[in-house]
Nucleic acid binder design. Structure first.
Lengths: 226, 226
DNA sequence: GCAAAAGTGTTGCGAGTACACCCATGT
DNA sequence: ACATGGGTGTACTCGCAACACTTTTGC
């Protein structure tokens, strides 16, 4: 912060690993690159940060421009800046996790001929840049946050059954969980309230939940993650 | 990643919140800024990323140039990029946690008239830029990692007693922990081995520990964090 | 329509476990 | 001062099974 000499010109980009429940399994959104480098390869959406724009805003904007997806939950999780990760120039990518509730309407643009959901367990063997690493880290971060945040509910409608939540947790963790125990642990968080205008069995999250108010205590889930 | 138009020129900087046990309590390293903006205010060390340099390398280099501290553990934790966080220009700061084992020899430079340890619980009321927020987030991340990583051992010599570890954990969490329970939980991780060339009561970490191999299971510690 | 089936939420129980607390011992 | 173990009582976890209720399905 005190260096007054000239410094390197580095591009600042944002990338988004967008998760969604699609056909009852966890998918992420990939686009096909039109131009080199990695022309024809699949990549996660992303692009340059504009002037006077926050990182989260840039992530949402690029996602919308390239895939027509809007209204998603966005959360930054890591920044990738190894020299050589972009063969053209030195570039730093602030990577984000994106979660959306129901598969939104996709649309291609001039720049992105293909936009498609891919099952998390069957990704294309080669991806552009270091995107394989970014996706792996996004998934692992998503798993780690299940215990302490309500992040999984961003993959569900605002009203949901406990069975829905159970299914999402199983998908993210990649293992099956005893339902009764899951249900107890979930209600024990004290963050669920019955959905107002719905038939039975539907709940929604308490509004204005602060950070750290959601504690999902489940010992064996922690075992499995580690 | 596909945008070929010109884009904003954004500075990429790194900042380091360097933790250290100093006089048996947890301190962080601050420098006094010499030039505007925030001339005279305290700040965490940091600066611009050079050409063909990784982010971690930049963090280590800036830390050394500004404070003469080297050989520290560095780990990235968040990137701050709100417009306006630097009044001069749009700038993105990739923030890092730094941990060092014993208070190293400090040295000022032309650019940094003052380099000093500050107790984490008594920071100067005003800090440069958004550094207060950065420090708060670094501390909270450090706490969260105690359960699942060996990060706390980076604050200790390579050989240590269990009481040393106990003390560090208490400092980071800001609360006292029952020693007997702590000792049992720590040895239960199976990651400690007796120190080779030392008198009794000294241990060191198992070498080549992989990620996820350290699980510190302690219910009430989790209670307190949340 | 009606009965069977499937889905959903809830409760009880028992075996095993984790934990806090205190103290004793050896080094 | 440090590491270690014992002992105890409490509280909790988890998986399994059973049950009540609703919605859907099939005939």
């Amino acid at each position: 912060m005190t260096n007054h000499t000239t410094h390197a010109t580095i591009s600042v980009t944002v990338d988004v690993v967008l998760f969604c429940m699609y056909n009852t399994t966890l998918h992420i959104l990939l686009i096909e690159r039109k131009y080199p480098p990695y022309a024809g390869a699949w990549a996660i959406p992303g692009g340059f940060v504009d002037a006077d724009e926050s990182l989260a805003h840039a992530a949402r904007r690029e996602l919308f421009e390239e895939t027509n997806v809007s209204d998603v939950y966005i959360e930054q999780f890591y920044t990738f800046g190894d020299p050589g990760r972009d063969p053209r120039r030195q570039s730093v990518s602030v990577a984000h996790i994106g979660l959306c509730r129901t598969p939104p309407q996709l649309a291609t643009s001039d720049e992105t001929p293909q936009v498609q959901w891919h099952p998390l367990t069957q990704l294309p063997p080669v991806l552009a840049f270091d995107h394989h690493q970014i996706i792996a880290m996004a998934w692992s971060r998503l798993q780690a946050q299940l215990e302490s945040t309500t992040i999984a509910f961003e993959l569900l409608p605002t009203q949901f059954t406990i069975a829905d939540v159970h299914h999402v947790y199983q998908q993210i963790l990649g293992e099956s969980l005893d339902f009764a125990t899951f249900q107890r642990a979930l209600t024990a968080t004290g963050t669920l309230i019955p959905a107002p205008d719905q038939t039975q069995h539907h709940f929604c999250l308490k509004p204005d939940l602060g950070a750290g108010q959601f504690i999902f205590r489940w010992r064996d889930a922690r075992h499995a993650i580690a």
